[in-house]
């Protein structure tokens, strides 16, 4: 029963990419696209966690941690660039 719930949650998260992609393509301003990409990256992190439990392999959890770090650094960098015009 538990693995069936995990498979349904993976399917649900793949479906939930559709509003993110819609907002990335259509979004009127640049912060809209950044917000949608940030949400998408967090969903990928959650999917990697569930997939790691499903496959009983620890290594996907490392990928999830690295992807979370890269997402945070990327969002902060883009917002600093939008704010001040320079990154550093």
């Amino acid at each position: 029963m538990s693995s069936m719930l995990l498979e349904y949650s993976l399917i649900f998260m793949v479906i939930s990419f559709i509003p993110c992609l819609y907002r990335v393509i259509k979004g009127p301003t640049i912060p809209d696209r950044v917000v949608a990409l940030d949400a998408m990256t967090t969903i990928i992190v959650v999917m990697l966690g569930i997939y790691s439990y499903d496959q009983e392999s620890v290594f996907f959890m490392d990928v999830a941690l690295v992807l979370a770090i890269i997402s945070f650094v990327g969002t902060v960098t883009i917002s600093k660039y939008l704010d001040e015009g320079v990154v550093f």
Partner: peptide, 20 residues
């Protein structure tokens, strides 16, 4: 890690959007 960094990133992008 996500619990700490996600509000920080959201605050920075909203401030950048307002100043932009």
């Amino acid at each position: 890690f996500i619990l700490v960094t996600s509000p920080v990133a959201a605050h920075m992008i909203s401030r950048a959007a307002h100043r932009h």
